[in-house]
Design a protein around this nucleic acid. Structure first.
Length: 333
DNA sequence: AAACCGGGGAC
DNA sequence: GTCCCAGGTTT
């Protein structure tokens, strides 16, 4: 049995992460949503800002949508934060302003799936349930030398059952220890088996090849899309367009895709490529100086303070800022 | 079961 | 360049 060794290792080697300081469902929930498909180091600064601005469920339930998206700028998967607000509202309406106390109830809330429900329930409430994330899948695929494709439903179910059967007290530490081991020792490439506290129980280490696990199907290649954006500038202001409510980068702000009329001066922006997980944008851009300032023109400071701009648009924005600051525009300010 | 949904660090 | 990250939802 490896549980004791793992827990002892965790006691000594756990990173001092800020969201581990409080055993409180709200902050644990926030950290878990932010950590979905996101490296811990990347979400930490966001976590601090978020907790400061929205310290509890009530404040989050009343948050302004654009403020929330702005706070999330650069983190990606923006529906996460919208689901959090929905979730907060539901907690105010149905659960007396708190998160529900069991994994089963938590799982019914928007944005909370099997992993996140298990993480909150076990870490905040000490419920003896599993929290199987990518780390745990990797650790267990090696521990039991599971060579099947872990993306298959039945294989994932099998791993979840193994984890469930392995749960040890305190479960809060145990679940986090499994993830921490996956993050620090049992890492995807070049696993540090020499430093592993449960090496002697690892089937892949003893009779297989840990570095080849977990077995993953080769992923489909990304489709490419050609995009053309027109950055409309009038005096010291830039035109922003809110993206559609659905689809990629929904609700965030970007530039026009339609060529404007009455261009006073036009300049080609440096082309760049932006890679998403399932699509690749080949982005051409034109800075178009226009003569009339209609709706939705904003100064650079306003844009940085108020609007959530996806990373894909930042290169064009930066070039435009430089253009304006160097006062190259035809019309004088 | 597969596609969709971001961004960036590590290699 | 490739991989994949404290995943969840929709199709």
């Amino acid at each position: 049995m490896f549980q004791k060794d793992l827990l002892k290792w965790y006691d000594k080697n756990a990173r001092p992460l800020i969201f581990r300081e409080k055993k409180e469902a709200y902050s644990i929930w926030i950290s878990e949503i932010m950590a979905q498909q996101t490296r811990i180091e990347a979400m930490l600064p966001y976590y601090r800002r978020f907790i400061e601005k929205y310290p509890d469920i009530q404040s989050l339930s009343q948050a302004d949508d654009d403020d929330l998206t702005k706070l999330w700028q650069g983190l990606g998967y923006y529906n996460r934060v919208r689901n959090m607000k929905k979730c907060a509202i539901e907690c105010m309406d149905c659960y007396q302003g708190s998160l529900p106390k069991t994994k089963a109830e938590l799982k019914k809330l928007p944005g909370i799936g099997d992993y996140t429900a298990g993480a909150i329930a076990s870490i905040a409430y000490d419920e003896k349930v599993s929290a199987v994330d990518g780390n745990v899948i990797r650790v267990f695929s090696r521990l039991y030398n599971i060579t099947e494709d872990v993306k298959q439903t039945k294989v994932k179910k099998k791993i979840e059952q193994l984890v469930e059967a392995s749960l040890a007290d305190p479960v809060s530490s145990y679940n986090q220890a499994l993830m921490e081991l996956g993050a620090l020792v049992c890492i995807p490439k070049n696993p540090r088996c020499a430093a592993c506290p449960i090496q002697k129980d690892c089937k892949a280490y003893l009779e297989g090849d840990p570095s080849k696990l977990p077995m993953q199907p080769k992923k489909k290649e990304r489709r490419k899309e050609d995009k053309i954006y027109y950055v409309l500038v009038c005096k010291d202001r830039i035109h922003l367009v809110q993206r559609p409510k659905t689809g990629l980068l929904s609700g965030l702000y970007g530039f026009d895709e339609q060529k404007p009329e009455h261009i006073v001066n036009q300049m080609e922006l440096k082309e760049h490529i932006h890679v998403f997980s399932h699509v690749e944008w080949i982005m051409k851009g034109y800075l178009c100086e226009v003569d009339s300032m209609t709706e939705n023109f904003y100064t650079i400071d306003q844009i940085h303070e108020q609007f959530s701009i996806p990373s894909a648009f930042l290169p064009f924005l930066k070039q435009t800022e430089r253009y304006i600051k160097e006062n190259k525009i035809c019309q004088k300010l």
